[in-house]
Design a protein around this nucleic acid. Structure first.
Lengths: 246, 246
DNA sequence: CGCGCACCTGTCCGACCGGACAGGTCCGGC
DNA sequence: GCCGGACCTGTCCGGTCGGACAGGTGCGCG
């Protein structure tokens, strides 16, 4: 059970996570979390996933005291095929406590994996991963600490916090705040029809103007968005939030 | 200051907000919030915004005991040009407490607006609005209740909760969970080049295959995604998270 | 050993697009 | 009153695309 001070600290950290927008701020956020629960080693990355939630690659790695040697070992030995956490990741909505996994998954290969992790000082800890909205990428948290998951207090705090650390990383990753050129209402209207696969002629009927007029707006939008064709213009407009989802 | 019970209730509601994915679940979430603080009337909608954060239109309205007559009055009289909350909306990250606005904005037209709202029983309450990520839309909350903002406890709870109610509405609006046809790795690869405005010929160089092979994959992707041209295929793939943001 | 599937390649043709040329109206601001 | 911007229209042409025809290899699975 959490004390009142804990509850306030958790709420304030969740509150603070809202305003995180840069990698530096996210780094600070992780350090704040480490003051609340005894996180000693942290490794956060953005994972690209395929349709089956398997990790295709990672980027934007943030490591705080996490043993590089273990990460190298993990990669070189292909331990991702053994690690139970890796299999469950991105499916569970909750942090995966390593101690729980050790109780549940006890095959010989998995036992060897646990022993191997132990050699690198990774006994207590958790993994957390979740897809970013409308993205093939996901967050991937690994945090370890001597007393990190042996107290119910720590586990509760972690369970509360992680979804919001994920949300912060999402904001950082998607780079919410960008300066984009302003499009005229007509240009936006035209792009909104293009995304449905309409041709110049079809849009011209919708807007009750000439086909050339549609072409005119598309050309202007392409120039403003620095796109080399209408497809890229729509892709940029979509990603910048200039036009809506169909 | 919040009691321990309040803190737990707030945290649990924030926790529950994570799992909201449908309009019904969101409706239930709002009702749970109304049990925590004396919200008597609620009106939630999704607002389409232009570049200057002005409301272009609204959709997906959810009203709980909110006076329809007021909404009609508001719209017909164009009170959006008078309402201080409407001006500040989508800029502030925090709920706008009506009582605070009444103290700050005291022009004659605004006083008349307050009196008018009073006639509809809208004295205490707040407005909250925030853009959805990478979208031209935003959430728009209006909640009213007799004792809603006269106690520091209620204001604190509201301040903590609203960002998460917003996040839930965002999930509902963007309709995260969809069943989409699986694309082959090659098809995804090709679409990922198309979004940068590449032509068949340019992609064929990147993939070191013939121009015809690229065309082949694009055709298959279009068929699977039920798109009438490559532009729509990319738009669909982007919106479904099948391919990444450039 | 077929069967399906992913992957790759070719040709043809009508439709569509991108870029260049050219022109016009209407409206708000200096 | 002039200037800039949004908006609209036209023609021409080379390049690209969409859809149809045709074919091929390699791999896993029953």
């Amino acid at each position: 059970m959490l004390s009142k001070g804990d509850l306030i600290a958790v709420l304030d950290l969740i509150d603070h996570a809202q305003s995180v927008g840069t990698e530096e701020q996210f780094h600070g956020l992780m350090k704040m979390a480490a003051q609340l629960v005894p996180i000693e080693k942290t490794h956060v990355s953005v994972a690209r996933l395929d349709a089956g939630n398997a990790i295709v690659g990672t980027s934007r790695r943030i490591s705080i005291d996490y043993p590089d040697a273990w990460l190298t070992h993990y990669r070189e030995q292909g331990l991702i095929r053994v690690d139970p956490a890796a299999r469950l990741l991105f499916r569970a909505e909750r942090p995966l406590i390593w101690a729980d996994l050790r109780k549940r998954y006890r095959k010989a290969s998995e036992q060897a994996f646990y022993n191997s992790a132990h050699d690198f000082g990774l006994d207590q800890g958790f993994s957390f991963g979740a897809r970013f909205m409308r993205s093939a990428s996901a967050s991937f948290f690994s945090c370890a600490g001597q007393e990190l998951t042996s107290h119910q207090r720590h586990v509760l705090v972690i369970r509360y916090l992680l979804p919001h650390l994920h949300a912060s990383l999402s904001k950082v990753h998607l780079g919410l705040l960008k300066q984009v050129p302003a499009l005229t209402p007509r240009e936006i209207e035209v792009l909104n029809w293009l995304k449905f696969g309409k041709t110049n002629w079809e849009v011209s009927i919708q807007l009750n103007v000439s086909e050339r007029a549609v072409k005119f707006h598309v050309e202007n939008a392409m120039r403003k968005l620095n796109a080399s064709n209408r497809l890229q213009a729509v892709a940029i407009a979509l990603s910048q939030g200039l036009i809506e989802w169909g």
